[in-house]
Amino acid sequence: MSSAATPARAPHPRRATVGRWIGIGIFHSLYRGRAHHADRVPRTGPVVLVANHAAFLDGPFVFSLAPRPVNFLVKQEAFTGFFGWLIRTVGQIPIDRTVGDRTALATAAAVLERGGAVGIFPEGNRGTGDVEQVNQGAAWIALRTGATIVPVAVSGTRVPGSSADAWPRPGARLDVVFGEPFELAVPTDAPGRIRLRMASDQLRDALASHVRRSRVENGPSTHVH
Results as ranks from 00 to 15, higher is better:
1 M>G: 01
1 M>N: 01
9 R>G: 02
10 A>S: 05
14 R>A: 14
20 R>P: 00
20 R>D: 00
21 W>H: 10
24 I>Q: 15
25 G>I: 06
27 F>V: 04
28 H>D: 03
39 D>K: 02
40 R>I: 08
40 R>H: 13
41 V>H: 05
44 T>G: 09
45 G>R: 01
45 G>N: 04
46 P>C: 01
47 V>T: 09
47 V>G: 02
54 A>R: 11
56 F>E: 05
57 L>T: 07
57 L>V: 10
68 R>C: 03
70 V>R: 02
71 N>F: 03
72 F>H: 09
72 F>C: 00
82 F>C: 04
83 F>L: 14
84 G>H: 09
84 G>T: 10
85 W>H: 12
87 I>S: 07
90 V>D: 00
91 G>Y: 12
102 R>L: 11
103 T>W: 07
106 A>T: 00
111 V>P: 01
113 E>P: 01
114 R>S: 09
115 G>L: 07
122 P>A: 08
124 G>V: 08
125 N>A: 11
125 N>K: 11
132 E>H: 14
135 N>M: 10
136 Q>I: 04
137 G>Q: 10
143 L>A: 12
148 T>C: 03
148 T>E: 01
149 I>G: 05
150 V>K: 07
152 V>W: 11
152 V>T: 14
153 A>I: 04
155 S>I: 00
157 T>H: 09
158 R>S: 08
160 P>S: 06
164 A>W: 15
167 W>L: 15
169 R>D: 11
172 A>F: 04
174 L>S: 05
176 V>E: 06
183 E>P: 01
185 A>S: 14
186 V>M: 12
187 P>Y: 12
189 D>C: 03
189 D>Q: 13
191 P>M: 03
191 P>E: 13
195 R>I: 11
195 R>S: 11
196 L>D: 12
197 R>N: 13
198 M>R: 15
200 S>R: 12
202 Q>L: 13
204 R>N: 12
204 R>C: 09
208 A>S: 15
208 A>C: 10
209 S>V: 03
209 S>E: 14
215 R>K: 08
217 E>S: 13
220 P>R: 05
223 H>C: 00
225 H>A: 15
